[in-house]
Design a protein around this nucleic acid. Sequence first.
DNA 1: ATATCGATTATCT
DNA 2: GATAATCGATATG
Length: 188
Amino acid sequence: MARELLGKVLVRDSGKLRLTARIVEVEAYLGENDPAAHAAAGNTARTSILFGPPGYAYVYFIYGKHYCLNVSCEHEGKAGSVLFRALEPLLGIEEMALARDIAVHGPRDLIRLTSGPGRLAEAFGITRARDNGCDLTSASSALWIARDGFRAKGFQITPRIGISKAADQPLRYALKGNAFVSGKRPSR
DNA sequence: ATATCGATTATCT
DNA sequence: GATAATCGATATG
């Protein structure tokens, strides 16, 4: 799923406003048996979406400040998911800058719009109240995943970022050479 | 009822 | 490179 999501487009539709951005970095979380996954705590009020059918938005709140977006994967009862870590803005850049409350002058500022799980959620106005449980596979949803003709040149797999448990597993997928990928730049 | 901590980011040095 | 900010979910009593 993580590999399939790379290169797809995240779409926000609210009224006549549309935001779109390409998915350039994601991480896989493997469900109940993955110590780093929220699903490891079991099926609770917080994580119930993870245990439902695939294709739905799991939104969580972290560090008192940030929302992050996952899509549920696997069949009902299996809590695998994919975390959206970075996007490349396509449409609605001014609106994203407004939501992020930053001024965009050059490419350097563009990166701060959607490079990082908390940043992309803020740019898209994603909150738990608004988007948790949303069907990401339906074009009539306010938040959904689209396919355009984009062909990725390649991707790379590295260890997941920002976790303390099971941090060694290579489950982070990123488009090769994409400037919007979060974290430290690979040496090449 | 209370304590702990995190799938992060911004802002320092 | 280090650290503060900030709050809801979860664990513990």
